[in-house]
């Protein structure tokens, strides 16, 4: 681990851009939106993301059946009009379970990354603003987080917290903060020396206020991009944990656990395992496309 690693290159351009336009940040986002709208792939991504959100919120209305009601006489049935994706090994409607599973994926994306963001921004801001020993300690902690095998760390925290979907969110969030911390720190280091911050200092503003009011808003653009591109990772981590049986608890429907449940029937009832896999793929694809587009939009140098 290098003592100070610069943020990834793609973020650097965004950072520079944000710095340049810190005075007129509204126009930065407006411009970005215009650029984003022109990017077809990003719009497709946004569409997928919006579908996920709508499905997750209105799962109760959209699902044709109760995802938890079992019908043991009607197990593992192929798709019919009644059950468009067939039934699982308890006779539950697979489509309804996938619809409810969207909730878990959306929540894992929002809550886990929210936790990671909160910890990361807080520690990154501390490190960047105060520097010295605080900085050193926090950056070493980041190095440790990066070098620690991620899934193992997640599993360790999961075991410590005990089973339950909220503990999955916490575990994934707790493992993923170091990237944000590094990003925020790097920006604060450079912003600190800029005129407007020094002006705020001179006018007697408190440290906390300076960080909150003047510095953080200027780090927003790269953070948004990083967040969008990190959500798929969190969704994937939940799926992996559920695949290992450590994620969502039954009867809760989670895409990862559905893949796991369905894999023994892969040859006879393939849709059982394939359908949730496709759901994950489209969701993650959506976030990736949207995130890419967002990145390009916030970095005008890549303009066509």
């Amino acid at each position: 681990m290098s003592p100070v690693q610069p943020p990834p290159k793609y973020l650097k351009n965004i950072i520079n851009n944000a710095k340049k336009s810190h005075q007129q940040s509204r126009s930065l986002y407006y411009d970005a939106w215009i650029r984003l709208k022109r990017n077809k792939a990003a719009m497709v991504g946004l569409f997928f993301v919006l579908i996920l959100v709508v499905v997750a919120i209105f799962a109760g209305v959209l699902a044709p059946h109760d995802p938890y009601v079992q019908n043991l006489e009607y197990r593992l049935k192929p798709p019919t009009a009644e059950h468009p994706l067939g039934t699982d090994d308890y006779g539950r409607d697979i489509l309804s379970r996938i619809i409810y599973g969207a909730r878990v994926s959306l929540m894992v994306g929002i809550i886990s990354e929210g936790i990671a963001l909160a910890i990361g921004v807080f520690l990154g801001a501390l490190a960047g603003y105060y520097g010295g020993k605080v900085d050193n300690l926090i950056m070493r902690l980041c190095d440790i987080m990066f070098a620690f095998p991620e899934l193992l760390f997640c599993i360790g925290i999961m075991f410590a917290l005990g089973p339950g979907i909220y503990n999955v969110f916490i575990a994934i969030g707790f493992v993923g903060w170091a990237g944000y911390a590094r990003l925020v720190r790097g920006q604060i280091l450079s912003l600190k020396k800029m005129e407007f911050v020094e002006a705020a200092h001179a006018s007697g503003a408190k440290d906390f206020r300076i960080i909150l009011k003047h510095i953080l808003p200027n780090t927003l653009a790269p953070i948004i991009v990083m967040l969008t591109l990190s959500i798929p990772g969190a969704i994937m981590s939940e799926a992996s944990l559920s695949f290992l049986g450590l994620g969502a608890q039954p009867p809760m429907a989670s895409w990862g656990s559905m893949i796991f449940d369905g894999r023994s029937y892969l040859r006879t009832f393939p849709w059982f395992s394939i359908a949730p896999g496709i759901a994950i793929m489209l969701t993650v694809l959506g976030f990736n496309l949207f995130g890419d587009g967002l990145r390009d939009a916030l970095d005008p140098r890549l303009k066509r």
Binding site: Q70, Y90, G162
Partner: peptide, 27 residues
Amino acid sequence: YKRNVAIQAMLKQVGIDMKINQMDSAS
């Protein structure tokens, strides 16, 4: 887990709400 999920649904019929917590075997 499969047997428990089936029993969970049966207990629900008589009003007992049984939550299933799968733990790692050592815990």
